[in-house]
């Protein structure tokens, strides 16, 4: 039975703790499961530990002097806790880091080339690029201009496209909606959904924009203060009154005559 569960989850993270600089405990025992082929969201406010969770999975923690001090992460049944970040990309984990971070002085085309795995043939790379330009036609138009001058939405598309070149089995995105107009968020999320369905790529999405995220994922985890405080299907989370109030921006009408002069406690904390 346990075996079977392992096989169904492409990623499984068991009570992972992360320390920065050997002193700061950023996440305190987070457990997250990503079933193969599904889209999962990590929700929560600023500084809750969502980004740290992704970095623990991608191995980028090391660049920020963080380390996993407890727990383990398995990817397709293999323990990857000690595997180097660049080798995790080779295994099929790709992390689209926060703030887009395209290679600004390269063209979009070169951005895609830079991410090509070692040993990918020229024709395979070109085919991959055409596929990505099909997903993101806006990029195709500007493939030879300097990436630093693309708009925010185009840069986010490029960052996702660049990640796809690495042939991921698990695509992790950190706040792809950050600073983008609502129609762009909708467009990008729609494309993510398409990629998930057509390529069978599992997706782990970190979002503050819970409203948009819960529309496309099947399950969500709510992280607060470095802990998972809630886990459920997207439907269940959307209808949860706390989620509605704190993350979806007020479910009920507010009667301003009766507003209480203290903020409501998040019951699951402390």
């Amino acid at each position: 039975m346990q075996e079977k569960v392992e096989a169904q989850n492409i990623l499984s993270m068991n009570s992972v703790e992360v320390l920065y600089d050997n002193v700061m405990l950023a996440i305190k025992g987070v457990s997250v499961q990503v079933p193969t082929g599904e889209m999962i969201a990590l929700l929560g406010s600023n500084g809750a530990g969502k980004s740290t969770t992704l970095k623990a999975i991608s191995g980028l923690l090391k660049a920020e002097r963080g380390r996993i001090s407890r727990g383990e992460i398995t990817f397709q049944g293999t323990d990857i806790t000690e595997v180097l970040a660049q080798n995790r990309v080779g295994m099929g984990i790709c992390h689209v880091i926060e703030g887009r971070r395209v290679f600004e002085h390269l063209t979009p085309d070169e951005n895609l080339t830079a991410a090509a795995p070692r040993g990918m043939s020229r024709s395979a790379l070109n085919a991959e690029k055409e596929k990505i330009y099909d997903y993101f036609p806006r990029l195709a138009e500007r493939r030879n201009s300097q990436a630093g001058y693309l708009s925010g939405g185009e840069q986010q598309m490029l960052a996702i496209g660049r990640a796809l070149v690495t042939q991921p089995k698990l695509l992790m995105l950190d706040e792809p909606s950050l600073g983008l107009a609502p129609f762009l968020v909708e467009e990008i999320f729609g494309i993510l959904q398409k990629i998930n369905q057509e390529e069978g790529v599992s997706v782990l999405l970190v979002e503050q924009n819970a409203l948009a995220a819960l529309e496309i994922v099947s399950q969500g985890y709510l992280i607060e203060n470095g802990r998972v405080v809630m886990h459920g299907t997207a439907e269940a989370l959307k209808s949860n009154s706390d989620i509605q109030e704190f993350y979806l921006g007020g479910g009920e009408e507010t009667d301003f005559h009766n507003v209480k002069h203290y903020s409501r406690r998040k019951r699951w904390l402390s």
Binding site: A85, V96, A114
Partner: peptide, 15 residues
């Protein structure tokens, strides 16, 4: 050239 632009982003795509 990608490395010169952004170490972190380079690591993230396996460079």
């Amino acid at each position: 050239r990608a490395i010169a632009d952004d170490y972190m982003a380079s690591w993230s795509v396996g460079i």
